[in-house]
Design a protein around this nucleic acid. Structure first.
Length: 358
DNA sequence: AGGTATGATTCTGC
DNA sequence: GCAGAATCATACCT
């Protein structure tokens, strides 16, 4: 009742009717004869009430007419005010909520993993961290490492394109709703504040959708990461040729089985493995050899013989180039023969000499 | 299935 | 940062 009075007062203010005049039949009559503002208001309200019963075309025409009515701005502002006080004041409480900790957590993680944030550095840094965590050198250029990076880049790309889609959809929808509300505000009391509030609601809804995207992206990164680490952890025996190359080096450098960085690189290249794998192999080999020399003796002998034979073959080839039947080639043949015949009895003694000679 | 071999990881000391 | 040592996890063999 109070609001109604205020509304009328407000309309009266603009239409030339004071609050005092409203309750006074004389002054109403006076005003009616001056321009009939109260009848105007009653008429307008009646027309607004009846608008839903009219056909679309009629309603459109009515809307236009009302929109152009001289009392419209006043009526509109009063109705907005009333609405603000009643309906909106209830919902006004839950405004301006603080940033969601869940979203913050997801954002931080995506940033740390290099999915969001700057393209350069982030992804490779995370990949390097993952590689380092897995015990490998980030500079290995190993298959797994590049694979991880490629997969991460893929996730990143999907994430950004989806995010862009969401943002576009959000802004399109916001614009649509704003236009709709602006359009409706011609016939309904919708204040700019209310439109703002509606926009905020839409943004909240879209950000909750975004959160789902962020969540699933985080999960994808986690799965990728665990698979990547698992794949590195999964043991695969080196092939026979690689083991032979490593053993040859080890037993031919038994007095100092510590390959230099260059030697490791060379071995890695020969064996088709990484430098860190070579380091691992030598680390394991040294410790296991030292722990159980007896067990490795046979292997040591085998490789010593191999080395001796190889050395003999090399020297035989070299001398054959000079003369086809030099004592050197004979020596090689003898050596092989001796190895074949005295294997069981004198191998130990013979190999002692062979190792010394190499 | 159980034992052994082996590549990888982790911890520690230097 | 590297090496040794212990340990883990899996491949391979019997």
């Amino acid at each position: 009742m109070d609001d109604q009075t205020r509304m009328l007062a407000s309309m009266g203010g603009l239409g030339g009717l004071s609050q005092a005049d409203v309750g006074d039949p004389d002054s109403v009559r006076k005003q009616q004869s001056l321009g009939q503002p109260q009848q105007d208001i009653g008429d307008i309200l009646q027309q607004i009430m009846a608008i839903t019963d009219e056909s679309l075309d009629e309603a459109q025409a009515r809307k236009h007419a009302l929109n152009c009515h001289r009392m419209k701005p006043a009526l509109f502002s009063v109705l907005c005010e009333i609405k603000e006080k009643t309906v909106l004041s209830i919902r006004g409480v839950q405004e301006e909520d603080p940033p969601d900790p869940q979203i913050m957590r997801l954002d931080n993680m995506l940033l740390a993993e290099g999915v969001s944030g700057p393209e350069k550095g982030g992804g490779s840094a995370a990949a390097a961290a993952a590689a380092a965590a897995a015990g490998g050198s980030p500079n290995d250029g190993s298959i797994e490492h590049s694979d991880y990076r490629a997969k991460l880049a893929q996730i990143r790309q999907i994430y950004h394109s989806e995010l862009e889609k969401y943002e576009q959809a959000c802004s399109e929808f916001t614009n649509h709703v704003m236009n709709l509300l602006r359009e409706q505000s011609r016939t309904r009391p919708i204040s700019p504040k209310e439109i703002e509030r509606m926009v905020a609601i839409i943004h909240r809804k879209f950000s909750s959708i975004q959160m789902q995207l962020k969540q699933s992206t985080c999960e994808a990164v986690m799965i990728l990461r665990s698979r990547f680490l698992d794949a590195r952890r999964k043991r695969r025996n080196f092939n026979k040729q690689a083991t032979e190359v490593l053993n040859e080096y080890f037993y031919s450098h038994l007095s100092n089985p510590y390959p230099s960085e260059e030697a490791k690189e060379e071995l890695a290249k020969k064996c088709g493995i990484t430098v860190s794998q070579v380091s691992n192999w030598f680390g394991n080999k040294r410790i296991r050899y030292k722990k159980n020399i007896g067990k490795f003796q046979e292997e040591a002998n085998l490789y010593a013989v191999k080395t001796a034979v190889d050395a003999a073959n090399v020297s035989a080839q070299a001398s054959q180039a000079n003369s086809p039947a030099t004592p050197n080639s004979d020596n090689a043949c003898l050596l092989v023969f001796a190895l074949c015949t005295c294997w069981e009895q004198d191998l130990g003694v013979f190999l002692g000499c062979a190792i010394k000679s190499t």
